[in-house]
């Protein structure tokens, strides 16, 4: 089914409201990439994340747990003091490493592979979007 112009307009509105800057949709025979100009917001959110990330090793085998929905990142459940995962923690594939808060809902962010938590990249409260890196994991072996 072709993507209609009205769909694109609606998607752009959603992007703007949710604070997500990019969306890519790929379907057989067509692809769509929408980029919203969120320059100042990008700069603001990129700054605190940078110092937290240690220098990447020469060959980076790490895997990244990413958000798959737009919202605000929560490292811990609001009823918990402890975050879902902490640096150095051993986790399994499918472990919940954090939440994305969308309105009243909490969508889990899950580890794509078993390993050790290298770093929680995202900051609690940060606006995240589809594909935003949340946790870097050093996979087993």
């Amino acid at each position: 089914m072709p993507i209609k112009l009205t769909d694109i307009a609606r998607l752009a509105q959603i992007l703007e409201k949710s604070g997500v800057d990019t969306i890519e949709i790929e379907e057989p025979g067509q692809s769509l990439k929408l980029v919203v100009d969120t320059g100042p917001r990008m700069a603001a959110s990129a700054a605190p994340a940078a110092p937290a990330a240690p220098a990447a090793p020469a060959i980076d085998h790490s895997v990244i747990a990413k958000a798959d929905v737009a919202g605000h990142f929560l490292a811990a459940h609001p009823w918990r003091d402890q975050p879902f995962v902490a640096q150095g923690q051993r986790i399994e594939a499918g472990t919940t490493v954090g939440l994305v808060k969308i309105g009243l809902l909490y969508a889990p962010i899950v580890a794509p592979a078993a390993g050790t938590v290298d770093a929680v990249i995202a900051e609690t409260g940060a606006t995240v979007g589809y594909g935003t890196p949340i946790v870097r994991i050093r996979p087993l072996s």
Binding site: P78, L99, Y106
Partner: peptide, 11 residues
């Protein structure tokens, strides 16, 4: 799929 809700006590 897995999904949570903000507890009523918070909202």
């Amino acid at each position: 799929g897995e999904l949570g809700v903000e507890p009523a006590e918070i909202t």
